[in-house]
Structures are given as C-alpha cells and as structure tokens.
Design a protein around this nucleic acid. Structure first.
Lengths: 335, 335
DNA sequence: CATTAGCACTCTATTGAAGAGAGTGCTAAC
DNA sequence: GTTAGCACTCTCTTCAATAGAGTGCTAATG
C-alpha cells in the first residue's frame, strides 16, 4: 500500500461520501489533482480491489469503498476535522440553562448532536445501578400524593410523583425516609434489590410495598424510556441509500429496540469509536456506520452517545462533534 | 342516495380499507352478497361517482372512495365497533401503576393507543395556562441544587430540578416560596407572566431571575417536548400508501412540528372527531385521516389524543379505541 | 322498467428488444 | 512505469407490443 494508492483511496472515498455514486477512474483524474491519467488510476483501483479496500457493484460501474476500505480510511488516512467557531459556540452554549435533571441533559445532547451532524443521534444515560444511594426523601404533595426524591453519590437527582396509601401521613413518611437512608446509604443501587426483598429485614418489611415501588423506579425498570433519548431519526431520510422504505423501517426500528442500548453499552472504553457496516454483525444496520463516545457523571458512572448514519458517513466531522460534545457534557455534569 | 347505493358504498369502502386497491364491480358482486350483477353495480358506482362519493384513478381501474365518500361512511353508514374483551382489559390495566406524573400518563397513553390501533398516535397534555396556581415550593437538594414543585388547582403536580445561585439558602428559598404562593395563589398561569415581569412589583423583583426561570418552566416554553408524546410513528411504514419515502418524510415531519398541536387543540369540543384527508387543509397530510378525542384533568383543563393513519383507516375500530381510552384516562386522572 | 349479458373501448402494467452511456481491462506504444 | 486506444460488459432508458382489468353502452330479458 504505497502513498499513491492511499491518495487514490482517499479521493475515492471523499468523492463517494459526497455523491453516493460509484466513482470511476476518469472522475478521480478530473476532480482530484492526482497527476496521473485515468489508466494509471484504473490500475491502482484494480489493486485496491484485490486488496479488499474497494468493491465493484458490477463490471461497468465505478468502484465503491468496502468496510475494510472505510476502516483504513478512518484509521490511517483521514485527518480529524477542526470544528468551525459557530459549531464550537453552539456546543458551549447548549447547556447554559439552570435545569439540572439528567433526562434533560440526555435529551438536549441528542438534539444537539443530531442537528450538528444531520444524522440520527442516540444518548444513553449512565445506568443508575453502578451508583450508590446518598439520600432518599419524600415530599408530601397533599391528598395521597408524594414526591419521592433520590440522590446518588454521583450527584444525580431523580424524582417521581407517587400515590401512596392513606395510612402514610407526612410524619410517617419522613421517618420512613430517614430509616431508609440510614440503612442503605452507600449501598449500590443494584444491591438494594436483594437487600430490600430479604424477608429477614423485619423492620423494613412493613413498608415493603412502598419500597418495592421505589425500587422499581430507582432501578429504572419502570420508565426505562427516560434513560434513552433519540433525536433526529428523520435525518436518515435525507440520504439516498434510504430511499427504500424497508431499509428505513429496519434502521429506525433498530433505534427503538433494546439492542441499541446493549450495543452501545458494549463499548466501555473512553474515547470515540467507529463501527462500520458489518462490523456490528447486526443485520438491521449492515448498511450503516456508528460513531460512539462516552461521557462521565461524577465518578466512573458512564453514559453513551451515538450517531448513526450511512456507511459513507462524514466520519471526521462526526467524530469531532461527538468528541467535543462528550467532553463538554462531562465537564458540565461534573460542575 | 337509496339503500342499495349505501350498501354498495359501504362494501366498496370496506374492501378498499382492507386491500388498498381500487375496487371493481366484479369484486364487489363476488365478495359481498349484494344480490345483483356486476352491471347493476357498475351503474350504481357511476351514480356514486357523479355524486362525488367515489373517484376513478383512471378509466380502466376500479373505484376509490373520495373524502366525501369516507365522510358519508363515517357519519351515516359505519356502525361503532364493540371492542373485544382483550382490548378492554388492556385499556383498564394500562394505568394501574402508582406513578402520578402527567408526562407519564401522556406517554403511556400514546403507546397504548398506537399499539391497539397500529397507527401512530400523539397525545397532547392539557395546557397549563388555563389552570391556576395552587402552591409553589422548593425542596433543597444540597449543593446549589433545588427541586421546584408546582401544584395547580386541577391537581396536577410538576417538578423540576434547578441550580440556584449560592445566596439562596434553604431558609431564603422557603420564604421565597411562601411569598410567591401567597401572592399568586389562584392566579391563572398565563397571567403570571405579565404579573411577574411588572417592574412595579418591587418586593418580587429582587428574585426576578429566579422567577423568570420558574416561569419559563411553568409555562412550558422550556421543555415543551414533555408536553407532547408521540408513539408508534413507524407503524405508518406498514401501509402501502407510504411506500414512498417522500410521503413518509412529510407525514412524520408533520408529527414533529408545532402544527400538530395547533391542529389538535383546535378541536375543543368533547367527543371523538374525525378529520379526513383534505379536510385538514394541511398539505403534509392530504393523504391521511385523523381521529381525535379529548380528555379532562380535574375541571375543564383539556388534553388531546390523536391517531393518524392513511385515509383508508379502520375508522370504527380506531374511534372505539380512542373513545374508550380517553374515557379511562379522564376517569383515572380524576381520582 | 329495472336488471343483466355482451362487447367494444380505454388505460395500466409488464415484457422484451434496441440503443446510449459509463467504466473497465487489456494491449501496445511511449 | 505510464498512458492512449479500443473492444467488451453491464446498466438504464426508451419504445413498442401485449395481456389484463374494468368500464360504459346497447340491447335483450323477466
């Protein structure tokens, strides 16, 4: 793989990303200053195909990058893009609001990223399970309603309105919360489950129903939807590879399934990751690429951030955006 | 419009709803026991076309209902569908959870309806504007965080976490909330805006920034998204009239725009309403029909519930579902 | 007199053939 | 090693022919 092959591969991928049409040798010679004739480029392209970096839809068409080609492009050729000032400003100002709820950040982030990239974007909240309980309290709301407020050691605050049985007056609830906090402070959320349901905890068991409720909520089984935010799904309709409704259904359907969360959460390492086409080994998104990044809340509790697009994605731009946003988000969530 | 014409129209619409293909006279004679020959049906169909109830895509195709045809079908022919037991049970059990937040109800309802109908469904929360303030309070969360809890006279409770400047300690916040509640109890939310921003309210103006924030939140300008919930948008891809991506984009785009809320909110009357095709005079949904209903929270504060589908929608089933759900929702929100 | 059978007519959708266009691979010349 | 030239391949578009579906009209029927 000499320097000229790299230049040809780069030019071809750039062109294909821009046009979505198979690229021929003449086009490359004309539009990119490679300094050689179409015939020479043809030879290089034949080599690149043999090496597995390019594919030919049919004999008389131009060539198209393969997964391996994109991979080489992303890893070895492409240079990171410097975001322009407007984009940076946009990212910096995105979180300058006084709201402090996690789901708001998630939602805002997904929207920001999908607007900047023009691809669908998905943001997954860090699993509560890894955090530990810092404080639980109830705020009576009159009638039989109560607001349950939970804080974790990572500084996250979640709350939810519940209806409680009549017998629980304000005083009782307060004692309940105190007991609970005293008993379980510092315990990881995912441990709470077994602890609470343990029948030996006699003192607690009187309120089991209430705890059960609280637990379901805390562990996120209850309103799992809030933990994931999808933005800009329709952006995908702008790309010609999705002119077929069947493909659209598969891809958008995939974004609504649990599988996404699993997939995204699998990449636990820091930094920006790229998954190209079949590398995901998921049928529904064979024709798509993913760019993912992580962000942190407080300690090591980690959330995920993802962009999905066609394989001919603007990798460098998307990667820069995703990186900048995840850094900003981590910064904001730390303060 | 004699009885036989009605029977022909009914059969034709039933068939078209089932198949999405233009219906010919032979088909009607064969599949529906009309007791007359295709020729007779042809004559009736010609009459129905002249009356504006049917249309012909081209001379040698069968016929298709017009907006007027559907309208007559919905108003005069169709009989309401009795939901089967499973569906009724499904509706009854949908809200048997202790959660009491409005956005949860909205979300749950949208999902329920879209799953039952297999069409996209949108639920709009009642505008807070019409309700009046019952109580505002702050719950300190430590650090510079505070939970703002608002109750209306209609019994709705909304809350949001905010970051506040350091100067506001627990005591100060409490007084602030008391002042605010005393001052503004009973005032309609939409009036709060002018009242609070009035520079003459000297005592209040010190906290203007905070109020401003609270206000933005209360009036829903801030997180407007929470007030609307869309479920099952991809259902639309199951219907052959949306095999074209351009149409999909227009319709799904429409569901994400503000226009929907305006449109839906326009129907203030109780009961189930149907809007067929061009009746909405909105370009994006010329090929769609809507079924809408309202639900109430407490007094007269009204929320909306909508189903969107192709014009050949299963009107009777959808209407029954929408009616049953809106009744159940009103019932649940009252208790 | 309403209903029906028969039939010519119209329009669409499908098929197959022809031709244009794009791009390649190979060979031979530079 | 590079390039020009050219035959070859494959797709896409166009066009005409054909089959199929359904209609509207007319004349016969009970």
């Amino acid at each position: 793989m000499d320097a000229r092959k790299r230049r040809v591969l780069e030019a071809l991928i750039d062109d294909y990303i821009a046009t979505a049409e198979p690229v021929g040798s003449r086009t490359l010679a004309r539009k990119y200053g490679l300094g050689v004739s179409p015939a020479t480029i043809r030879n290089e392209m034949a080599d690149l195909e043999e090496l597995g970096y390019l594919e030919q839809p049919h004999t008389s068409a131009g060539r198209v990058p393969s997964d391996k080609g994109y991979r080489y492009y992303v890893d070895e050729i492409m240079r990171p893009m410097v975001l322009d000032v407007a984009d940076r400003e946009r990212i910096r100002h995105a979180y300058q609001v006084r709201v402090r709820e996690l789901h708001w950040f998630i939602h805002q982030t997904a929207r920001l990223v999908s607007e900047l990239t023009q691809y669908p974007s998905l943001v997954v909240a860090p699993p509560m399970d890894d955090a530990s309980l810092a404080d639980l309290s109830f705020v009576p709301l009159g009638e039989d309603m109560v607001l349950m407020v939970l804080k974790t050691n990572t500084g996250m605050v979640e709350n939810q309105t519940l209806a409680v049985p009549d017998e629980f007056d304000a005083r009782k609830l307060q004692r309940l919360a105190q007991d609970f906090t005293r008993e379980f402070r510092g315990v990881a959320i995912h441990e709470l489950k077994s602890r609470i349901l343990d029948p030996l905890q006699g003192d607690i068991s009187r309120y089991r129903e209430l705890w059960h409720l609280a637990l379901k909520w805390v562990t996120g089984q209850d309103d799992g939807e809030d933990k994931v935010s999808l933005a800009g799904p329709l952006n995908i309709l702008n790309y010609p590879e999705f002119r077929d409704v069947e493909k659209v259904r598969r891809v958008l359907g995939f974004l609504e399934k649990e599988t996404v969360v699993e997939l995204v959460s699998r990449t636990t390492t820091d930094g920006v990751k790229v998954v190209i086409g079949a590398e995901s080994s998921l049928d529904d998104i064979q024709d798509c690429s993913l760019v993912t990044a992580t962000y942190r809340v407080g300690g090591n509790v980690v959330g995920h951030l993802m962009v999905l697009g066609p394989r001919r994605m603007h990798y460098n731009r998307v990667m820069s955006i995703v990186e900048a946003v995840s850094e900003e988000l981590t910064r904001v969530l730390h303060g």
